[in-house]
């Protein structure tokens, strides 16, 4: 045995590597993996917070000029919103009366699980392919397909993979991260949202007859069994509609910056 070690250490290492792979796939390494993950979770959380604070201070310096422009535009919007608020109050009052009459159940009390973001994950460091890793998993009752929201109740993505003590979340701006959504317009247009380049969200294959306006709010449609209805994704910022095309598409801007998320909630069905 010692001779073999002296002569063929590479084969020994290869054998160890293959053994680890086999043990992982048959599940024999799970207790070890869970113990390791639980042990490093506090350190992982602190390191991620440290990294995001560096990232946030770097972003602040570069975004100052953009912020000044945005302030001017927001002041204009504020005036328009005052009128909208008055109309909203009327609609809300009517809605409450109707609910009492029809005895609807209030669907806004969701059951959530709080989780910390401990890493951004991806084989390559390209902006459009960064998923988040959170420190809750199957043990906390999570499963694939559940919606993940920010502290303001805005949908940031959904769970795409679950381990015992962790889960992977795709952001709504990631290509391939699709959600069943609907627009808050006259016809409650329904469709599928998908990420674009890690920056925005797109809603394609909308029939030409549907009327979509800039600033229409996009929410989850509830057609997916795991994700409840009414969770806000973002607002429409651009509509691409050609008269000779069958479909039109909308670009949706998320309502918050995903770069500095540290605490999220998972909505349980």
């Amino acid at each position: 045995m010692m001779k073999l070690q002296r002569k063929n250490p590479l084969f020994i290492l290869l054998a160890i590597f293959l053994l680890i792979i086999i043990l992982h796939w048959i599940g024999a390494l799970q207790p070890v993996e869970r113990f390791i993950f639980k042990s490093i979770r506090p350190l992982s959380n602190d390191l991620y917070l440290w990294g995001t604070s560096i990232s946030a201070s770097y972003d602040e310096r570069t975004q100052k000029e953009e912020l000044l422009e945005k302030i001017e535009s927001l002041e204009t919007q504020l005036k328009d919103l005052a009128i909208d608020k008055a109309l909203y109050q009327e609609v809300l009052s009517e809605n409450e009366k109707l609910r009492k009459h029809l005895n609807f159940v209030d669907n806004n009390n969701f059951t959530t699980v709080l989780a910390h973001v401990i890493a951004q994950e991806g084989l390559f460091t390209t902006a459009e392919r960064r998923d988040l890793v959170i420190d809750k998993g199957r043990q906390a009752g999570l499963s694939e397909g559940l919606a993940v929201i920010s502290d303001g109740g805005i949908v940031i993505g959904k769970i795409i993979a679950v381990e015992e003590e962790s889960a992977r979340v795709c952001l709504t701006t990631t290509p391939g991260c699709q959600l069943a959504v609907s627009l808050q317009n006259e016809t409650q247009t329904q469709g599928l949202s998908d990420g674009r380049l890690g920056l925005t969200i797109a809603m394609d294959f909308i029939p030409q007859l549907e009327k979509i306006a800039i600033s229409d709010v996009v929410v989850t449609s509830g057609l997916s069994s795991e994700i409840p209805r009414g969770l806000v994704l973002g607002k429409v910022t651009e509509v691409k509609s050609e008269s000779n095309e069958v479909w039109q598409s909308a670009t949706i801007e998320p309502l918050l910056n995903f770069n500095n998320l540290t605490i999220v909630s998972v909505v349980l069905p």
């Binding site: 350190l43 992982s44 959380n45 390191l47 991620y48 917070l49 440290w50 990294g51 995001t52 560096i54 990232s55 770097y58 972003d59 401990i118 890493a119 951004q120 994950e121 460091t125 902006a127 960064r130």
Partner: peptide, 9 residues
Amino acid sequence: FSFISALPA
């Protein structure tokens, strides 16, 4: 895994 992934691009 944690610190480097949280940094700017």
